[in-house]
Structures are given as C-alpha cells and as structure tokens.
C-alpha cells in the first residue's frame, strides 16, 4: 500500500508521516482482523486445532468450507462496495451518494424479485445478471433525474436518490406482499454473511474483478469527477467512461446483493473517510478505499458474530449503526468547514 502511495512523497512534508501511518495501520488491521475472522465462531477452530488435527480434521474442514470463504467474502464485499461508492461519487460529483442512496440497490432487488416470480429455477449467476441489469437501469434513471438538479445542491442530489429508492422499494414490497414473497425479500434486505460457505460466495470474485476495472480506469474516473467540460477538454469520451462506471456500480451492487444482501452506508462512509485523509485522486484512493472498506466490514462482521454468541446479529444492523454514527460525524465535520 505504501508503494502505491507514490504521490504523497511530493506533498507537503507535514502531511506525509500522517498518511503513511494510516496506511500501515489499515494494512495491519486488515491482516489481524482477517486472521481473527478465521478463528472466531461457535465451533472451536484454532490454529492449534487445525495443526494437530491435520488436513482431515473437523477443524480443517470447517476452515476450508466455512471460515475461509466467509472471510474472503467479507473482504471482497467491503472492498468492492467501497469502490462502488467512490465511483458513484465521481460520476455524480457528489460526496453523499452510493448505490443504496440512489435507488440502484432497490432496482437490483426488484430485479431479484422478478427472477423469483418469472424464472424461479434460474441459476444464481442468472439471478445476478438480471439484478445487475436492473441495477444498471437504476443507475441510468438516477443519472437522468439528477441532471435536472444543480451540481452544487449537495444535499438535494442524495435526497432525490433516496426518494427514487423509496418508490422502487415500495413497488418491490407491494409485489412481494401480493405474491407472498416478503420473506425472501427480507432475506436480501438484511445483509449477513451467516450463510456464506464454499460454493456460495464465488460470485463476489466478479465484484473483485470490477475493483480491478475501476483501478485500471482510475485516472479517467478522476477526470470525470471534474465534470463533463473538463473531461471533454482533456480529450476524454465522457459518455463512455460514465457507461463503464455505471457497469462497475451495477455489477458490484448485484453481486453483493445475491450473496450477502443489502449493506447500507458502507459506500458512503468509507470513501468519505479516505477523502479526508488523502483526497479524491481515484488512483491514489482506490487501495485505501478497498482496504478501509474491507477492514470496516470485517470488524462489523466480527461484532455481529460475537455480541450474541452463539447466535448472530444481521451484519446490516451493525453496519447501519456504526455507519450512521460515522456519517453523522462526517456531516457535522463538513458543516464546520468553509466551502
């Protein structure tokens, strides 16, 4: 992470130590939390039990079938949702948007409901495809609508998104109610990693691939974040970059939705915290956002598993509480700064 952070070497000296310190901290936390996540749970799986038991022991089986997939899933979800939020904030040029405040998540879950009603036997990859397509439509609708809102109306933009999401969510709930599918709907709308096992999380690698796409196109997203006129002046095909961004957002949202469910606030809080420390240059921010997002979800998932041992609290509850507090802090902090 420190090697990627090349630009910080040319910035003001007093900022340099602080930034690399935070970078190291995020890296260490990521490793520590990931290891902890492997060995926390109802069954006794510890490094010692795996080593003494050998590859055929129950502990080793649990590690491979449940704990490793779960930890990987948590990291992938945290990293990719953070990136989805970051890219969305660049496209909209507003720091208060992310898939769940713009109706994208709601559209994707309407897509999920549609597959349940019309193609109940569809494979998970098909469900994800339909959800991604709906998410793409949702992103497009949102971008169309906010075109009529001035860029400087910072709060109005997410407000419009939340209303849009509310409408789509209400439609989804209505049909789910009429078709007796409310229970299934409840399953996705509460994000949780409790059911993640080997064979049930692999689609998240597609979300991971989207992070790579975002990283490759990072400079283009930074330029897009300056606005259409800047982008055109710099010879960038604005529409094409926006289209790539929309695809990244929709695929990540859908992949997370079909595997873990809705996880609110993450895409909002993580890029904003990172932005405070190192700014919004996407190339520089991506490893930070991915790392911080992973740490955030790992920590929340651990809390969700430990608080009511041997039961689990849905992850979205923990993320919602922690995220909301962080978000409030960001809002109040921002308000105190000169614009």
């Amino acid at each position: 992470m420190t090697t990627l952070d090349r630009t910080s070497t040319s910035t003001l000296p007093h900022l340099r130590p602080r930034r690399s310190w935070v970078g190291v901290l995020v890296g260490v936390l990521l490793v520590v939390l990931a290891l902890t996540s492997l060995f926390v749970g109802v069954s006794d799986v510890s490094p010692a039990s795996v080593l003494t038991g050998g590859p055929d022991s129950d502990a080793a089986f649990l590690l491979v079938a449940s704990r490793i997939p779960r930890t990987l899933a948590v990291i992938l979800v945290g990293a990719s949702l953070g990136i989805a939020g970051l890219i969305m904030q660049m496209l909209v040029r507003n720091k208060f948007v992310e898939p769940s405040t713009t109706g994208v998540t709601e559209f994707a879950s309407l897509g999920m409901l549609t597959t349940m009603v019309f193609f109940p036997g569809l494979a998970v990859v098909g469900k994800m495809g339909v959800a991604a397509a709906f998410g793409l439509v949702g992103t497009w609708v949102f971008l169309r609508v906010v075109r009529f809102v001035p860029v400087r109306q910072l709060v109005l933009v997410p407000l419009v998104g939340i209303m849009l999401g509310g409408v789509v969510g209400a439609v989804t709930t209505f049909f789910a109610y009429r078709l007796d599918l409310l229970q299934s709907l409840g399953q996705w709308s509460q994000g949780s990693f409790a059911t993640i096992m080997q064979g049930r999380y692999e689609f998240l690698w597609i979300a991971g691939a989207m992070v790579v796409v975002a990283w490759i196109a990072a400079d283009r997203f930074s330029v897009i974040g300056l606005g259409e006129e800047f982008a055109t002046n710099l010879g960038l095909d604005y529409r094409r970059v926006v289209a790539v961004g929309m695809l990244v957002i929709a695929v990540i949202t859908a992949a997370v939705l079909v595997t873990a469910g809705m996880i609110p606030f993450l895409g909002l809080v993580v890029p904003n915290v990172v932005s405070l420390i190192i700014g919004d240059n996407v190339r520089r921010a991506i490893p930070w956002v991915a790392g911080t997002g992973a740490v955030f979800v790992l920590a929340c998932d651990l809390i969700a598993r430990v608080v009511r041992m041997p039961y689990e609290i849905p992850l979205s509850v923990i993320v919602g509480v922690v995220g909301a507090v962080l978000f409030l802090w960001l809002l109040l902090r921002r308000g105190s700064r000169a614009h």
Binding site: T7, S10, T11, M90, R93, N94, K95, V151, R152, L154, D219, S222, V223, G225, L226, G227, F230, L234, S275, L276, G279, D280, N281
Partner: peptide
C-alpha cells in the same frame, strides 16, 4: 469551475 472532488494542486496539474 466548481470541483467537488478533493484534489491537490499537483493532482489537478497532472490531469492536464
């Protein structure tokens, strides 16, 4: 020119 993104002077000039 309203730039919402938090970019440094060096970032901006780099984009040029």
């Amino acid at each position: 020119n309203h730039v919402a993104a938090r970019l440094t002077v060096r970032d901006l000039v780099e984009f040029g």
